[in-house]
Amino acid sequence: METSQNRTLKGPLYCPLLEQMREDNLNNNNTQVNLVVVCIHGIFSSLGILENALIIWVLGFRLRQRTVASIWMLNLAMSDFLATLTLPLFTFYFYSSHSWELGYPLCIVQTSIFFFNMFVSAFLLAAISLDRLLLVSKPVWSKNHRSVARAWKLCALGWGWAALNTLPYSIFRSVIEKADSRKLCYHHFALYLSSEDSLEMDCNVRQGATAISKFLLAFFFPLVVIAGSYIKIALSLRNRHRRRNLFSQSFTKMVTSVIAAFVLCWAPYHIFCILEMAAQYNKKIFKLVQVGLPVSATFAFLNPVLNPVLYVFSCPHFCVRIRQSLGAVFDGLVEEDVSFALPGSPKTSKSSSYQSPGAELPLPLLSKGRRDSQTDQTGQ
């Protein structure tokens, strides 16, 4: 009987979990089901690319005046656009009966962008939440320090931080051939600096470190920051009895929707990644992960497709504005109406020459037609 150690002498070392995946044959022979999945995935791929490209065009090239809110949205859209560009690769993977036939370079590209988008999205959503909190808790500081230039610098920091965290997932990614000749684009934690003696420990440490770190850094900690920020905001508004007109209601609605979509799309993926650490020791968990992890990854891929829809439909008077111009849809969404006064001072109006702390001018309509005067009167 050939042992796993004897097998490793004839070829490269594989982690125990990866060895099980190589030998396992999932039944993906239902042609009709696979065809439906491929078609649906292809449609969402095309929509995601078009949606995010349109948002980047509007926010990046059509707006004549930027706000901090528009910078947050633009960077989210750019990250989502990169992620949706890799969706056709995943569609082809389904089309090829769950076999990666696109080669090692595209395997690295797809993996890197997937994790990069995960970290960038988490960072930006946490930054947006802290930005909202600062507007409430430190209005004077926000008035003096909050700017588009600083928002760009913070976004650049987030992109650099995401790239750094993506490196381990790119380094330990490889294309592995299975026993049934299909190919996996998957983590190969024994790829570097591993020996037969240290194989199991190396695999457990590396898999555990990557799974837990991405759960903490790209999900749990950002979620704590997001939840804590909005709880603090709610308490502050209740104490001041000034709930209305603190922010643009449309932007607050959009942020809430995007955060909810982020949690719903990414939570299953992180849960299955944690379960995967125990899969090599339990057959039932292994089978569950084998089926559930690809499905949860598909849900995660849906996040950058859903975000543009949430951006657009969070805009007040959507149907009216879409008839005016594409830019008009985002005019009421990224403007920042934070017309509140400092404690003890009277509230100011939009017509006043005084601009409230942290407030920014509304974004102008892009169309050459007239601006709907009723839009400004609603404060949206």
Rank of each mutant, 00 (worst) to 15 (best):
P139F: 01
R244D: 13
L164W: 07
A179T: 14
R146C: 15
V255P: 06
N165D: 01
Y192G: 03
S236G: 15
M201E: 12
D202C: 00
L216E: 02
R173P: 01
R244I: 08
A190R: 03
P222Y: 03
R150N: 12
L154K: 11
P139R: 01
G158R: 00
A190T: 07
K214V: 00
A163K: 02
K153R: 11
S194C: 13
N245C: 09
A211K: 02
C155N: 13
G160K: 01
S181V: 12
V225K: 04
N245K: 06
K232C: 14
Q249Y: 05
R206I: 08
G228M: 03
V255E: 11
I231M: 12
L237K: 13
Y230C: 07
S236N: 12
S170E: 02
E200N: 09
R243A: 14
K253W: 08
T166Q: 03
S142P: 14
I231F: 13
Y186R: 05
S142C: 15
E200A: 07
K178S: 11
W152C: 13
A163V: 07
R238G: 14
L237V: 07
A190E: 10
L223F: 08
K138W: 07
A156F: 13
R238S: 15
A179N: 10
V148F: 06
P168L: 04
S248P: 04
I226V: 15
I212F: 08
V224K: 08
S229C: 14
M201K: 08
I212R: 00
K143C: 14
L157T: 09
R206S: 06
Y186E: 11
V175I: 07
D197L: 05
I176H: 01
V148D: 04
Y192P: 08
A179F: 07
S142L: 09
C185M: 05
L235I: 04
F215G: 13
W159C: 06
A227P: 05
R150D: 08
R244L: 14
R238M: 13
F215M: 09
W161F: 12
H241K: 15
F220C: 12
L217E: 05
M254Q: 05
W159I: 05
Y230E: 10
L193P: 00
L199K: 03
L216N: 00
I176K: 01
S213K: 00
